[in-house]
């Protein structure tokens, strides 16, 4: 066979088309835009802290410390504060990850179960939706009385809050394999397990990772918010925010808020990378890195 010239040429053209379109437009504007917004944000912060807080909002100045003071007092201040914050953010990360992990295991198992038969889906899915719709904070006393007000309860909040996106995205992914692809497996007598492992799960991967990413963000929120309510044991970053607020340690409070935000961003980014590694070769991973 000497037809390699044909398809080779086809591939080349395709390559050119792909390169020509999006890559050529990654301009300076696109690069500088986000930086500009950041600079603008910091500027606004200074403006409020130095002027607007008193002149416009009629509040005492110490409520909004300027950025450099926040950084200085929170991350370069006393060792005690630094330790406290470092431990706090670590503990919250631990809670969030553990909750997420358990939610992933339970959620994926439930989704696989629901994908087995329509009636199972019909029986379970409404409750998954309900789980999503219920305001978790209403259950704080209930959770507390069963699980205490410590680590376990916080992890539980994370599980509950991050379960639904995993169930929904996994299920959606499992059901997304095309009819034509299913036909291939039918033609070759593949049973349910082969179909699940070689068709449905791989087809579901992109959407499974989307679910992970959404849930990871939620789980961090769960860990921080749960901290406000389940106040026994070591303090996570959420409780530190509250503690500093109560003490009127405003720079530290802002620092803790920044850490909590960073934790969320890092986790979101991490799962974006993970999904890129897992399915990036064959699937266009959307969203920023």
């Amino acid at each position: 066979m000497t037809t390699t010239m044909g398809p080779g040429a086809e591939l080349e053209i395709r390559d050119k088309l792909q390169k020509a379109a999006p890559a050529g437009r990654a301009t300076m504007k696109e690069r500088l835009g986000p930086i500009g917004v950041f600079v603008g944000f910091i500027g606004l912060w200074y403006l409020i802290s130095a002027w607007a807080i008193e002149a416009v909002f009629n509040k005492p100045k110490f409520l909004v410390p300027p950025p450099h003071e926040v950084i200085q007092d929170s991350f370069f201040g006393t060792a005690k504060i630094r330790n406290e914050m470092f431990k706090g953010v670590l503990l919250s990360a631990e809670v969030a990850f553990l909750g997420l992990l358990i939610a992933i295991v339970i959620g994926m198992a439930l989704a696989v179960l629901m994908s087995r038969a329509r009636w199972i889906e019909k029986s379970l899915f409404p409750y998954a939706v309900a789980l999503q719709a219920v305001p978790i904070l209403a259950f704080v006393p209930l959770i507390g009385s069963f699980l205490g007000f410590n680590f376990t309860a916080r992890v539980f909040v994370c599980i509950v809050i991050s379960l639904f996106p995993i169930i929904a995205n996994t299920l959606f992914g499992l059901l997304s394999a095309e009819a034509g692809q299913h036909d291939l497996f039918t033609l070759h007598g593949a049973g349910k397990l082969k179909r699940l492992l070689k068709l449905q799960l791989p087809a579901a991967l992109p959407s499974i990772f989307t679910g992970f990413r959404i849930s990871a963000g939620l789980s961090v929120i769960g860990a921080v918010v749960g901290d406000f309510f389940f106040r026994q044991g070591e303090a996570g970053i959420g409780r530190l925010i509250d503690v500093y607020r109560a003490r009127n340690d405003n720079p530290q409070m802002y620092g803790a808020v920044i850490l909590a935000a960073l934790l969320g961003i890092v986790v979101f980014w991490l799962f974006g990378q993970l999904s890129r590694v897992a399915v990036g070769r064959w699937h266009e991973v959307t969203g920023q890195s």
């Binding site: 066979m1 000497t2 037809t3 390699t4 044909g6 398809p7 080779g8 086809e10 591939l11 053209i13 395709r14 070769r281 064959w282 699937h283 266009e284």
Partner: peptide, 24 residues
């Protein structure tokens, strides 16, 4: 793969192939 003239593309993923090559 040799028979349909796709030698050299064994490691390509479908999204990188043209319609003709996918059919091959």
């Amino acid at each position: 793969i040799e028979l349909v003239g796709l030698k050299g593309f064994e490691r390509s993923y479908p999204r990188r192939l043209s319609g003709g090559m996918r059919m091959r």
